[in-house]
Design a protein around this nucleic acid. Structure first.
Length: 559
RNA sequence: UGGGGCGUAGCCAAGUGGUAAGGCAGCGGAUUUUGAUUCCGCCAUGCGGAGGUUCGAAUCCUCCCGCCCCAGCCA
């Protein structure tokens, strides 16, 4: 049997890791340096998680490091709120940049010096055309552009003008610095791209020191080079920018030579991963905020109760490739359940209570019942439940006229109450409106703990809660933000699922659920995984459903 | 007859000339004091299509079809 190198086995298998491996093997690089470069103009979402896991993951696997770098080249869009959120979310996801926190704005002075170098080399010029004129002369997808009348400007003029741009002599939009490449290129990014624009706007970090700011293209590759990035990983839409990325690095005296590689963004069914749309969902009040548990943001997923390890696992399962794809939400839910199943303590909670009275259980009596905290993990211990004459069970667990294959409670049927006794439904009580308000049942004292000495079996085990010894709680059930698997982002408002939030105000939960720490996940048996919401108080418990359990009965019943 | 990418099962995705991995979903079955979990089995004569090269093609060649990205002084 062939030996497999452990690190090689742990490292994912994808074309980018293949490249990294080959670069290390050939000696092109001795170590690996990557970077995650968000622009602080919004919250991170699960799409970013893919990029984070990729860049930080590769650095980890190959013994290098990954920088967190803010791509803060456009002060009109960025804010401190987003910077704080990004750092919190990357850490929460499980990654650490240690001392490698950088900003493109740290390099403004160097970038400016390189721009002057380009001018001196005759490879950049100041263009006086208006934005409209530039657009009109850029050409189209099928036609070449035409050269600017200022393209032939001399080096001294360009230098003088560029310095005056920096000094604040001109208004926004009056002039730009452009690279002199090829107005006839099939790649529009090479048609004399803008390198610097005038923006009389204060920057969160550099304040008013600058009134000209480098474009993404002029900042990104050089920032990579300054930081010694070896593999600069980004999404597919930047493929067209790579020739410009390379052109700048080839024409500037940069200290290292990074390479850019592109992969497909993550898309998920039933949601939208577009910063623009997510921002509008928040600003338009369609959700409660960036951390609304229905949001695909990391902040939303955290509040929802999704473990970061589940996100990492999901991203790994989805893979890294160049084909555009939309991953089924079911795959994400599988990862969430897999992680929660192992760790979550089991509890009982009745979402929609139906009162049950045990007629042959003495008035005023009650007893303690021991219940497992985790059936597959004895180390999780036990807890005590109080069993008494009046209980609550789930409304859905009773049917007066049970359909075929329904083996929960119905008139005359016997079921087990988890960890307690077998009970049999004897009578159904209704109100004037004909609604079922109470079940009268009998219990078999010989079945204490849930087993019948005579060996008789029961086809269902129900969760329950004592009427007197339970607490009411609010439980928030979440459904996909978008009902259709592939919502159109251009018309997202019309695509919103009106039933994405279902608030159950009067659930009853076992007392052990009070006073637990909010971070821990619990499984409400037979229902799903839940966590305490940030809105919860000792007086008013509020739970979020992270994800439901798989439900074969729903399939059989066709609901 | 602009440039750059991508097409392998319902959804992801390996595979790089030697006879289609794996996961999710689905479907059977076993176990089960959660209709959960766990376990077992099934699920592409087929790789966008048509030709060609070869003993042999998802992999190489030719032509065709489809989808995505690019015309910000956004990133």
């Amino acid at each position: 049997m062939a030996l497999v190198e452990p690190t090689a086995r742990e490292a994912g298998q994808d074309f980018i890791r293949d490249i990294v491996r080959a670069d290390l093997a050939s000696g092109r690089h001795k170590s690996v340096v990557t970077r995650f470069p968000p622009e602080p103009n919004g919250y991170l979402h699960i799409g970013h998680a893919k990029a984070i896991c990729l860049s930080f993951g590769i650095a980890e696997e190959f013994g290098g490091h990954c920088n967190l770098r803010y791509d803060d080249t456009n002060p009109t869009r960025e804010a401190q709120e987003y910077i704080d959120a990004i750092e919190r979310d990357v850490h929460w996801l499980g990654f650490d940049w240690s001392s490698h926190l950088y900003h493109a704005s740290d390099y403004f002075e160097q970038l400016y010096a390189w721009a002057e170098d380009l001018i001196r080399a005759g490879k950049a010029y100041v263009d006086d055309q208006s934005q409209e004129e530039m657009r009109a002369t850029r050409g189209t997808l099928t036609e070449a552009g035409t050269e600017s009348p200022y393209r032939g400007r001399g080096v001294e003029d360009n230098l003088d003008l560029f310095r005056r741009m920096r000094a604040g002599a001109f208004a926004n939009g009056a002039r730009v610095l452009r690279a002199k490449i090829d107005m006839g290129s099939g790649n529009i990014n090479l048609r004399d791209p803008v390198l610097y624009r005038i923006l009389h706007t204060a920057h969160p970090r550099t304040g008013t020191a600058w009134c000209i700011y480098p474009s993404y293209d002029f900042a990104h590759g050089q920032s990579d080079a300054i930081e010694g990035i070896t593999h600069s990983l980004c999404t597919l839409e930047f493929e067209d920018h790579r020739p410009l990325y390379d052109w700048l690095l080839d024409n500037l005296p940069v200290p290292s030579r990074p390479r850019q590689y592109e992969f497909a963004r993550l898309n998920l069914t039933h949601t939208v991963l577009s910063k623009r749309v997510l921002t509008e969902l928040v600003r338009g009040g369609h959700v409660a905020g960036w951390d609304d548990p229905r949001m695909p943001t990391l902040a939303g997923l955290r509040r929802r109760g999704v473990p970061p390890a589940a996100i990492r696992d999901f991203v790994k399962r989805a893979g890294v490739a160049k084909a555009n794809s939309i991953v089924d939400m079911a795959m994400f839910e599988f990862s969430i359940r897999e992680h929660l199943n192992k760790k979550a303590a089991r509890r009982m909670a009745v979402l929609r209570p139906l009162k049950v009275v045990i007629d042959n259980y003495p008035h005023g009596q009650s007893e303690e019942i021991e219940a497992l905290n985790h059936p597959d993990d004895p180390a999780a211990g036990t807890r005590r439940l109080r069993f008494s004459r009046e209980l609550y069970v789930e409304r859905d667990d009773f049917k007066e006229n049970p359909p075929k294959k329904f083996f929960r409670l119905s008139p005359g049927a016997e079921v087990r109450l988890r960890y307690a006794y077998f009970i049999t439904c004897r009578e159904v009580k209704k109100n004037e409106a004909g609604e079922i308000v109470e079940l009268r049942c009998t219990y078999d004292p010989a079945t204490k703990g849930g087993n019948a000495p005579d060996g008789r079996k029961v086809k269902a085990t129900l969760h329950w809660v004592s009427a007197s010894d339970s607490r009411t709680a609010e439980i928030r059930l979440y459904n996909p933000l978008f009902a259709r698997p592939d919502p159109n982002p251009a018309d997202f408002a019309a695509e919103l699922n009106p039933n994405s939030l279902d608030v159950v105000a009067d659930a009853r939960v076992e007392p052990a659920l009070a006073g637990r720490n909010s971070g821990a996940a619990v499984q409400f048996e037979r229902q799903g995984y839940f966590c305490l919401d940030a809105d919860s108080t000792p007086e008013r418990l509020v739970f979020n459903r992270t994800v439901g359990l798989r439900d074969n009965w729903a399939k059989i019943a066709g609901t």
